[in-house]
Nucleic acid binder design. Sequence first.
DNA 1: GAAAAGAATTGATATATATCAATGTATTAT
DNA 2: ATAATACATTGATATATATCAATTCTTTTC
Lengths: 225, 225
Amino acid sequence: MTGQVDFCTPKPAVFHSLNEEELTILRKNSFEVDFKEGETIFKQGSPLTHIIYLTEGKAKLLLENSNQTILMKIVQESDIIIGPGFNRDYRHYFSVVAIQDTRACFINVDIFKQFIELNTSFALSLIDFIHEDTVSHFDKIKNLTNKHMNGRLADTLLYLSDDIYKSHEFLTSLSRMDLANMSSMTKESVIRTLKNFKEDHIIDCKGNEFKILNKEVLIDISKKG
Amino acid sequence: MTGQVDFCTPKPAVFHSLNEEELTILRKNSFEVDFKEGETIFKQGSPLTHIIYLTEGKAKLLLENSNQTILMKIVQESDIIIGPGFNRDYRHYFSVVAIQDTRACFINVDIFKQFIELNTSFALSLIDFIHEDTVSHFDKIKNLTNKHMNGRLADTLLYLSDDIYKSHEFLTSLSRMDLANMSSMTKESVIRTLKNFKEDHIIDCKGNEFKILNKEVLIDISKKG
DNA sequence: GAAAAGAATTGATATATATCAATGTATTAT
DNA sequence: ATAATACATTGATATATATCAATTCTTTTC
């Protein structure tokens, strides 16, 4: 169905420290699975048996709760997903759901652990990788305590434009509810705030098509909170 | 002034994987500094040159901001403090301030990095350690989005009672403002909420002396948000 | 021991944001 | 094509929580 993953084009930072021999082992111990938009790649609470490496598409990472869902970030091509259950309780601490057709490469956790045990610079780059996430968690915590709805939604729009769709104009499959879960607000508040941004000619949106019209002001709103 | 740190009594989980030889190197490359209540052990933004290991006392870990301060957690005896600047930009991403007289052991980062490079099980336990923090960051993010003031303050009180002072009755040097920064609310709201808890005979407090009178109800409030 | 400074408390008011309910608009299925 | 389902929008109202200002209590300083 799909060819072998080479882990090289492009090569995520974490894999830089693996030598040819290790990459060969990695290729032999991994396989790809295709997911359709809306399908769950893995579910919070379920056993963590594989590290996921996205070769194509995009997915949302969700912290789930009886009452609420938090959309932590979007993962995309060449991102790897390692949760805090790795080497600990081997459970998933969040769910990952495809937001468009996505191809995910499954790497056996034991192999992954072996690489850490055999290759210390791999271990070190993994520590760096986890620390990057820590910084974004700090930012999220700061934003939740400091910023109001306008600022948080501005953040979400800038994130989608800059980091995910890489264009000031983008079509997304994320619903208003997804944007709400991303910005920690209700879908109604998202709609009202988007309307305000539209009236102020900061953005334009129709359905799922978004245009950033005035990025400077959006950045300003994000900063001011 | 202070004797050599043995890193063994009690030995934090991260140091378990170090052998006698490595512990000797660690002892030779570390030194202790005493801090008085209120003194800053290190400041957010400043260079990260040492890993801190608390041998005595307690300190608050602060995410600082122009407008607000977030008290992330209390660190105490036998806790180590490694921030996300390690092996990356070598800057501190948070401040640490003593909340009582505290003795901190400073371990050279280069030595620390060498241990990771030489001892893979040390690297692995460090990954586990960072992942533990990740879980608590997830909890914090969940609490901030889900819980109201009552729930968040209940969490803070339970945390102090269970994890920090290890008693249902404790005297703390944390101010109402600290409790506010810990629970993401204003000091006025902390005071009002404490008053409500007191009127409902869930806690008792006078100045900085706290008593948990009805832990079950407090846990309930924490769960319900 | 009085004065000053800092922290805690209380009350009144403002504001951000959620909730609820109704309606409108797409998209899918029969 | 029509019904059915999900999603988006709007308005009215409720609520949690911050803000501001005044007062009291506690600790430090001279």
